[in-house]
Simulated assay, not measured.
Amino acid sequence: MLKSSLDENILGMTQIQVLSDKPTLIAHTLNLIVDKIHTTLQQQEKFTLALAGGGTPKPLYEALAQQSLPLEKIHIFWGDERYVSAAHPDSNQRMAREAWLDQVDFPSSNIHPMPTGSNDPSVDAQTHDQELRDFFGVEAGEFPTFDIILLGMGDDGHTASLFPKTEALTVSDRLITVGNKDGQPRLTFTYPLLNHARCIIFLVAGENKRPALAQIFSPDGDETLYPAKAVQPQGELIWLLDEAAGAELNG
């Protein structure tokens, strides 16, 4: 795909950075997040960060565990969660705790996982929706603003647990909804919540992501088939890619 074939409307609002390899990608993302934490906390009392699951961000979390951060001012959330217990190997919460949160003296009251224990994903989605509203102090019909939401992208173009042609893509009146992956429920941020963010950072690695990226940055790409394309926040949108994923966007 040539640079000229990219959707200029998207590029006008988006930063795309292609890093040489995954370690460089992780190091760059680490520096960006740490800088934003310190800069933001000069202006406000707390910093809100929503984490991504999957394998790509794990080394980032491990690197964050080595940083000196004002943990008492940082509040951690998740953009989506598999509907499993926090002890399950597939849990996004478990991965982040093992890689970062449990490795440092993080105040437990500053960690806000998605609940998955009621045996009813819809009930847990409503519970977390209200938890977010209470934390941010927003009423029904309003959407809070996260300082950073970190997102990944699957090779099918999904992000968070917003999968192609699923009902979750149409939810516009809630913060949290139930996503669906091959019949397995997940909890996920909705588009309106994502798009109210102050900054969204996509972290994408691997050659298998190229076809989806081509569609996401194409004027003809279909948002229902490539859901990451519909993430267009009111604040910054930063795509950070390794060379394997982003070579065709780096021309």
Rank of each mutant, 00 (worst) to 15 (best):
H112C: 06
P113Y: 09
M114K: 08
M114H: 09
P115Y: 11
G117V: 13
S118C: 04
D120K: 04
P121R: 05
P121D: 11
P121Y: 13
P121G: 12
V123W: 12
D124N: 08
Q126G: 15
Q126W: 05
T127H: 14
H128D: 13
D129E: 15
D129N: 15
D129G: 12
E131I: 04
R133T: 04
D134L: 14
D134T: 14
D134R: 15
F135A: 12
F135S: 10
F135M: 06
G137A: 09
F143N: 03
F143C: 08
F143H: 15
F143P: 02
T145Y: 09
T145C: 15
T145R: 14
D147E: 12
I148Y: 06
I149T: 14
L150S: 09
L151F: 05
L151N: 07
G152F: 08
G152W: 02
M153A: 14
M153Q: 11
G154M: 02
D156T: 00
G157P: 05
A160W: 03
F163S: 06
P164V: 01
P164G: 05
P164I: 01
T166G: 11
A168E: 02
S172Y: 07
S172N: 13
D173Y: 08
R174I: 01
R174A: 02
I176H: 02
T177A: 04
T177V: 00
G179Y: 00
G179E: 02
K181L: 14
D182E: 14
D182A: 13
G183N: 09
G183S: 14
